[in-house]
Amino acid sequence: MSDARNLWSHRLAVDFRAALVVVAVLAAAPIVVTSPYTLGILIVSMYFALLAMGWNLLAGFAGQFSLAPAAFAMLGAYVPGLLDYHWHVSLAVGIPAGIVGTAIVGWLLGRVVLRLRGPYLALTTLSFAEIARVVISNSYDFTRGAQGLNVPTLMQSRVGYYYLFVAVVLVVLAGLFFVMRSAIGRFWLAIRDDETGAESRGIDVVRYKTLAFALSCAICGLAGALYGTFSQLVSPELGLLLQTGIVIAMVVIGGIGTLTGPLVGALLVYLASEWMRGLGNVQMIVFSALVIIFARFFREGLWGLVARRRVRALPRAAAGAR
């Protein structure tokens, strides 16, 4: 792409519009899809979409390859669960507390890993994730350990839950769009591409990196808190590294560093894996192979391939200068 369509503002706008179309399709789905079972699958796939968007903020936009998104979903799910179990605090307080709590922990983790890059960052966040999971699994008296914790539900209506998730996906998506369009988003991209370069030009790397950690972890925490009340059970399994692997797979297949990619990737991967479950449980083999193939040969992911093709198809003259 060598014309004005390669400008970040333009790429982002096209990306956002495509993502809105996906959300619109999701919003319209209950017209056709009425079975509670299928709606449930779509709800879980939106949970993964939120995680994917959260992780993509950190890894795809700010360039920080954390291996802890699932751990933050777990933490976000446990906060309302524990508040209810021990102190009968209502979800109206519990869920926001989960979001704020994960944001604070994410911010702290961001502070602590500031100087670490690449493999060092991956190992540190992996350790954090595993420690969090081991602690929750072993603190039986407080968390009921591996048995898991019952969480009250927000509402009985499955369609109601469905639209709650659609609304939250829309809000997160719009939030990401506005942040990425602002100076903050541009600074993240700069830090991703060259941290030293960003610093030497006056970008406060410390501030924007920790902000990325806090926001990303808050999105993951929000996803976890909602999922916990939907499934009415939270367990340490939410924080397994395997879950993080699935989230990474979704983002890489969909298209890292975009808005549409993680959303589409999560929906496609989760729905296809439900479908493949009937074909002999090969879904994880297929997706992990796809991740490797995409990382190796199609680094832009599905959305990247689509976006590039779209631009090629248009005549050059139509682009003009902006």
Partner: peptide, 11 residues
């Protein structure tokens, strides 16, 4: 050079 390689020169 330390430029931001994955965004346009203008960006």
């Amino acid at each position: 050079t330390r430029v931001f390689v994955r965004i346009s020169a203008f960006d």
